[in-house]
Design a protein around this nucleic acid. Structure first.
Length: 529
DNA sequence: TCTTCCACATC
DNA sequence: TGATGTGGAAG
């Protein structure tokens, strides 16, 4: 995505600001430019969230895809992401329990098309699907647990089925998206959503992608085939391939081996190479190892949660080398202080990490600064308990929460724990809950708290994220971009989340669909069940 | 564009 | 060995 921005016509900028900033609304991202020192607010760290650092596993692979313009297949049944989203988290209090979750927010409000070997805007985006949160199945777990090994979200699935009952994240084809990671400190009930709940959000610009029902750019196809073990059957450079190809194509043998045609995954050149870049800015611009900080302070949990709404612009679009902006100033500062340790980056790189990647094998990149967790914001309370899951990780099921604007404060652990034990339960989802397409932006004024958050939380990723300068050479490889974290304390009262009905569906996920309506700054949400 | 089916791979 | 994850091709 390096140029994806360009290529995709990516956004110019997200509206949101750095979450750290307590301010309410910043409509202009510019204010968060890189050079801006970390805001005082960001400096303050809420409840120890400031020291948390997140490193994207296999960032090199992500960057390769990003440079071409990452595409993720979405199917009715749900499709995993590849590269899979795995992170290494450091700086957590070993004894404190945290809930890790992901959501995927719109990168902008455009619909894209792929023609002439490049992505271009073809219209306005369709209304965003109900936002859903994917709660890591190990949640809640102690900092020691999360830090012990890579945190993998590889089981997260993407679907284009608006009525998806499995809790998969619903996306629109030919639209751009940005995955986000949220780290939430579990409250006394092993949940979050109560006042003072602290959390931080991390965004890795290179993980932005365009959802498709079939690959558009053959370079992406080749990268997937070459790096995804499950696609190994499509690799080939020997006679087997010729036979296979002949068979598949119904052609007489011989057939030109794919190998002769495909480009090296790593190859820099591509037909489109000149232009093709990822959705984001150039790789160089992207990475810097910053650690993030969390914000903190002032904003209420709700704000955080509300965060980014439905869409914001992806980072980096047109950053020019050298010109990195940053929204994530806060992060940077920290990085220098904290990241120098060099743990961000591991020497080893591996194209594909297995399900149980060992640390040390991967190459990590610090997350870029994140906007506020939109998904979190309005989620109903998510209750998590140690119980069944804590020990039985393998058995745990991921929980999905959906909502246009989920709020963390809304989540109550109790309910979560309650339902999760049952494998597969999902909340009956209403297909189309009342959903506000782009609350924060479209309707919410600065005045509203939500909007404020939204802005703060979802800063123009493109601009900020992509450009973070590296802070310390030691800390991370150039490729590693900085990551920004926003942390805040949840101020809103804890609400109990509606319980899911166990009987529902497949065992893999719990889905909560929440709908948030932003009004007067106060988000309202409801869980569909 | 999307859905479905297929062969082939991993797990 | 069966379940599941892949991209390709056909429709």
């Amino acid at each position: 995505m390096a140029n994806g921005g360009d290529q995709f016509g990516l956004a110019e900028r997200p509206d949101s600001d750095c979450m750290d900033s307590p301010k309410e609304t910043k409509q202009e991202n510019s204010s968060f430019a890189l050079n801006s020192p970390a805001s005082p607010q960001s400096a303050s760290s809420p409840q120890g969230m400031e020291g948390i650092k997140v490193f994207l596993h296999d960032s090199e692979l992500w960057t390769k895809f990003d440079e071409v313009g990452t595409e993720m297949i979405i199917t009715k049944a749900g499709r995993r992401m590849f590269p899979s989203y795995k992170v290494k988290v450091t700086g957590l209090n070993p004894k404190t329990k945290y809930i890790l979750l992901m959501d995927i927010i719109p990168g902008d409000d455009h619909r894209y098309k792929f023609a002439d070997n490049k992505w271009s805007i073809t219209g306005k985006a369709e209304p965003a699907m109900p936002g859903r949160l994917y709660v890591h199945p190990d949640s809640p777990a102690t900092g020691a647990h999360w830090s012990r090994q890579l945190v993998s979200f590889q089981k997260l699935k993407l679907t284009n089925n608006h009525l998806d009952p499995f809790g998969h994240i619903i996306l629109n084809s030919m639209h751009k998206y940005q995955p986000r990671l949220h780290i939430v400190k579990a409250d006394e009930n092993n949940g979050f959503g109560s006042k003072n709940t602290a959390f931080c959000t991390h965004i890795f610009p290179e993980t932005a992608f365009i959802a498709v029902t079939s690959y558009q750019n053959h370079k992406i196809t080749q990268l997937k085939i070459e790096n995804n073990p499950f696609a190994k059957g499509f690799r080939g450079s020997d006679d087997n391939e010729l036979h296979r190809m002949a068979k598949l194509q119904g052609k007489d043998y011989p057939v030109v081996p794919r190998s002769t045609v495909r480009q090296r995954a790593c190859s820099t050149g591509s037909p489109f190479s000149g232009e093709s870049r990822g959705l984001r800015g150039s790789p160089e611009a992207v990475g810097s190892p910053y650690s993030c900080e969390n914000g903190l302070n002032g904003s209420s949990p709700q704000e955080l949660l509300n965060a980014p709404p439905t869409h914001y612009t992806l980072p980096h679009p047109h950053l020019q080398p050298g010109q990195q902006q940053q929204v994530y100033h806060c992060t940077k500062r920290k990085v220098e202080e904290n990241c120098s340790s060099g743990n961000h980056q591991l020497s080893y790189k591996k194209p594909f990490t297995g399900s149980s990647p060992s640390e040390g094998e991967s190459y990590y990149r610090l997350s870029s600064y994140p906007p506020p967790p939109s998904g979190l914001s309005n989620n109903p309370a998510l209750g998590l308990t140690d119980s069944p899951y804590s020990s039985d990780m393998g058995q745990r099921q991921a929980c999905m929460f959906a909502g246009s604007e989920p709020r963390m404060d809304e989540l109550s652990c109790t309910s979560w724990s309650y339902t999760c034990p049952i494998p597969t339960a999902m909340t009956p989802v209403e297909p189309y809950p009342p959903y506000t397409p782009h609350p924060p932006y479209s309707s919410s004024p600065q005045g509203s708290r939500l909007s404020a958050i939204a802005h703060q939380t979802s800063p123009p990723l493109g601009e900020h994220i992509a450009h973070d300068p590296y802070q310390s050479q030691n800390s991370a490889p150039p490729s590693q971009s900085s990551q920004n974290i926003h942390s805040r304390q949840l101020s809103s009262p804890l609400r109990e989340y509606p319980r899911y009905t166990p009987n529902l569906s497949p065992p893999l996920y719990h889905t909560l669909e929440t709908h948030t309506h932003i009004r007067c700054g106060v988000p309202e949400w409801s869980a569909a069940s």
